[in-house]
């Protein structure tokens, strides 16, 4: 999707966050030289187009005690993986759920579900609930715990040259 120059300027100005003031949109609008009303209309349009998912904050899982995270991976029958994927995504403890290609022979898994918990035992018991749900449709599974965060910067649009 192509953004017009004003929308792109809005993304660049807000992707690191909004100023924490009572009227954050007014501050951003002023920095962009546009009326606040136009900024709000453009943000509403970006939201209607699915480019902005929401305005809010992201909690730090680790600081809130969710220190264990396991990437559970599953080899699920292709005929039913999408139906079952919907059900697994709907589980309250699954933070991300994707169907991805296998990389045979080293990687037979086509369904990835990220599970967070206070410790590994909690993550493993949640993994067992996924296993129950998949039942016979799952041929093999594994869980990969993260042992270290090596980098976490998130995506940034680069400033256009000129």
């Amino acid at each position: 999707m192509k953004l017009d120059p004003k929308d792109r300027a809005i993304v660049e100005a807000t992707q690191a966050g909004l100023p924490l003031v009572p009227q954050p949109f007014a501050v951003v609008a002023e920095s962009l030289g546009m009326p606040e009303e136009e900024l709000l209309e453009r943000l509403a349009s970006l939201k209607a187009r699915g480019i902005v998912r929401r305005i809010g904050a992201a909690p730090n899982h680790y600081r809130l005690g969710m220190t264990a995270n396991g990437m559970s991976v599953w080899d699920v029958d292709d005929a039913v993986v999408d139906t079952l994927g919907e059900q697994i995504g709907a589980l309250p403890f699954v933070t991300h759920c994707y169907r991805r290609p296998r990389a045979l022979p080293v990687w037979p898994y086509n369904l990835f579900a990220m599970v967070h918990g206070a410790d590994r035992a909690e993550v493993l018991s949640k993994r067992d609930r996924i296993k129950d749900l998949l039942s016979d449709a799952c041929r093999a599974n594994d869980i990969l715990f993260s042992t270290r965060i090596l980098k976490k910067t998130g995506m940034r649009l680069r400033k256009k040259k000129g």
Binding site: M1, L18, L20, G50, I51, V52, R53, R54, P59, R63
Partner: peptide, 26 residues
């Protein structure tokens, strides 16, 4: 606003602002 800033500065919130679907951005 002050409370959100404190939570962010303390690292309990990672970021406050719009969340973009980067794929929708291209």
């Amino acid at each position: 606003v002050d409370r959100i800033r404190r939570l962010r500065d303390d690292g309990l919130l990672t970021r406050f602002g719009p969340f973009f679907d980067a794929e929708a951005l291209g």
